[in-house]
Amino acid sequence: MTITLASTLAGLALVDSPSFGTLLVPIWLMLTPGRLHPGRIAGYLVTVAAFYFCVGVVLVLGADTALDAARRVLADIPSIPLRVGQLVLGILVIALSYRLEARARRQGDTPGRMRRWRARAMSGSGSFGGLMSLALVAAALEVATMLPYLAAVGLIADADLAPHLTGAALAGYCVVMTVPAIVLAIARIAAHDKAEPLLCRINDWVTRNSARALGWTVGGIGIGMVLNAIVSLLVDRS
């Protein structure tokens, strides 16, 4: 493996690190009032990294076949119908965001239940399997949207590395991707007493606005899809 490839992969991993599963959910877990149990946050991050490693292995092994199949499928679909389908899907995602926000508001006590589950999971009294399930769901939901990760997998596949180097490159990428969350967790543990009041205030704000944030997140994805489809349609017609 060349230094250029290694540095490129490290850069892509750092770009990937502020994602939903690798940083936002860990921060939410770290906001749990009380002393943070290192084993719980470590278990979450290890599960996320292991998931991405396994996905990367599958993609590298079948990258050429999968890319060729995708190109053949997309080549048979005219550009305008493809973009119109994307536009419709984006509108449906925006509509879904309103539905999710309305349902979360109707449930009322959902933030309270989530806080209690998080407190049990992070204190050690709750199921560790539930924490692993959260990690797997978070990683699975966003893996297809993590373009730097997919680009890194493509670079590793194109590099034609030996199997052990391929595994090492994927493992290193997944570790670097979790570094910001690890640094924050260490800071949270080291500065527990000083950080507690601020973390409690942030936690209260997050839980009060969780329903609205869910709608904004999903709606933002839909808006991005719609805008991309509109721009592509205008370019195709010009």
Rank of each mutant, 00 (worst) to 15 (best):
R116A: 14
L155H: 07
L12I: 08
P78S: 07
T22E: 09
M177E: 14
M177I: 05
W205N: 05
S19C: 13
V206F: 13
T32K: 14
A70P: 00
V15W: 05
A190S: 08
A169Y: 14
A102H: 12
R115I: 11
P26Y: 06
D193Y: 07
R237L: 14
T8D: 15
W205M: 09
D76L: 06
A211M: 07
T110W: 11
L147H: 02
I221L: 14
G172Q: 04
V57R: 09
A63T: 00
I189G: 03
D64N: 04
V15R: 09
G43Q: 10
A42T: 15
I80K: 03
G90Q: 05
I41L: 08
V25G: 03
L9Q: 01
W117E: 14
V235Q: 06
C200H: 14
D236R: 13
R237H: 10
L92N: 02
L184P: 02
L136W: 01
G112M: 13
H192E: 11
R40M: 13
N203D: 15
S17H: 08
A187M: 09
V143Y: 03
L198H: 09
M30Y: 10
I230N: 02
A49T: 05
R106C: 03
I202T: 11
P18C: 06
S123E: 09
V143N: 04
Y149H: 05
G224K: 11
C200L: 11
L12S: 12
S7Y: 12
T166A: 06
V58W: 09
T32Q: 12
M177H: 05
L141Q: 02
R99W: 12
G215I: 08
A144M: 08
E196D: 15
L45E: 14
I80V: 13
A13K: 12
G126T: 09
D193I: 07
A66V: 05
T4W: 15
C54I: 12
R118M: 13
A104D: 02
L92S: 09
V84A: 10
A66P: 01
G11E: 04
L92Y: 01
L147R: 00
D160L: 08
C174G: 10
A10D: 00
T4G: 15
Y52S: 02
S123P: 00
A195Y: 01
I91T: 01
L45H: 10
V226H: 02
V15T: 12
D76T: 06
A138N: 02
G172C: 04
P148C: 09
G129T: 13
L92G: 03
A140F: 12
L9T: 00
W216A: 04
A139M: 07
A144S: 10
P163K: 03
G124H: 07
G90S: 08
V25C: 06
Y52V: 04
P111E: 07
L96P: 01
R212D: 04
N228H: 14
A190P: 00
L100Y: 09
A75C: 01
L136T: 00
M225G: 03
G112Q: 14
L141N: 04
